[in-house]
Amino acid sequence: MEIKHLNTESDILLGYPVMKHLRTHLDEKSYLSLVKEAQQQESYQLVGVFDNSRLVAVTGFMPMVTLYNGKFIWVCDLVTDPDVRSKGYGEALLTYVHDWAQEQGYNKVSLSSGLQRTDAHRFYEEKMKYDRVSYVFLKKLGS
Rank of each mutant, 00 (worst) to 15 (best):
103 E>D: 11
112 S>N: 14
113 S>M: 07
100 W>R: 05
114 G>F: 11
106 Y>T: 00
101 A>M: 04
102 Q>M: 08
116 Q>H: 14
101 A>Y: 03
108 K>L: 00
119 D>K: 14
114 G>A: 15
108 K>C: 05
101 A>E: 02
106 Y>W: 01
101 A>G: 13
125 E>R: 12
115 L>N: 15
109 V>C: 08
99 D>N: 13
127 K>M: 10
105 G>I: 02
125 E>T: 08
122 R>L: 07
114 G>D: 15
120 A>S: 09
102 Q>A: 06
107 N>T: 02
99 D>F: 04
107 N>A: 01
108 K>W: 02
121 H>C: 10
128 M>R: 08
125 E>C: 05
110 S>R: 14
119 D>M: 02
101 A>P: 03
105 G>N: 04
109 V>M: 04
122 R>E: 12
123 F>T: 02
114 G>C: 06
112 S>T: 11
101 A>N: 02
100 W>L: 05
112 S>E: 14
103 E>P: 00
101 A>C: 05
116 Q>S: 15
128 M>C: 11
111 L>D: 09
104 Q>S: 09
117 R>Q: 13
126 E>H: 12
121 H>M: 11
107 N>H: 12
99 D>L: 10
112 S>D: 15
129 K>N: 15
103 E>L: 08
115 L>F: 15
114 G>K: 14
125 E>D: 02
118 T>G: 04
105 G>H: 00
112 S>L: 06
111 L>K: 03
116 Q>G: 15
121 H>F: 01
111 L>Y: 03
111 L>A: 07
99 D>T: 12
123 F>M: 08
106 Y>C: 02
100 W>Q: 06
128 M>P: 03
100 W>M: 00
114 G>T: 09
99 D>E: 14
100 W>K: 06
108 K>R: 13
124 Y>S: 11
108 K>H: 05
124 Y>P: 06
110 S>C: 14
126 E>K: 13
99 D>R: 12
102 Q>F: 04
122 R>F: 08
106 Y>I: 03
129 K>E: 14
129 K>F: 07
113 S>D: 09
122 R>G: 00
110 S>L: 09
102 Q>C: 00
102 Q>I: 00
100 W>I: 05
112 S>G: 08
111 L>V: 06
114 G>V: 02
106 Y>Q: 01
105 G>Y: 01
118 T>E: 15
125 E>A: 05
126 E>Q: 13
111 L>Q: 06
110 S>Y: 13
130 Y>L: 08
100 W>H: 07
121 H>T: 05
106 Y>S: 00
128 M>E: 12
113 S>A: 15
101 A>T: 00
128 M>F: 06
114 G>Q: 14
104 Q>H: 13
113 S>I: 01
104 Q>M: 08
114 G>I: 02
104 Q>V: 01
106 Y>G: 01
130 Y>F: 15
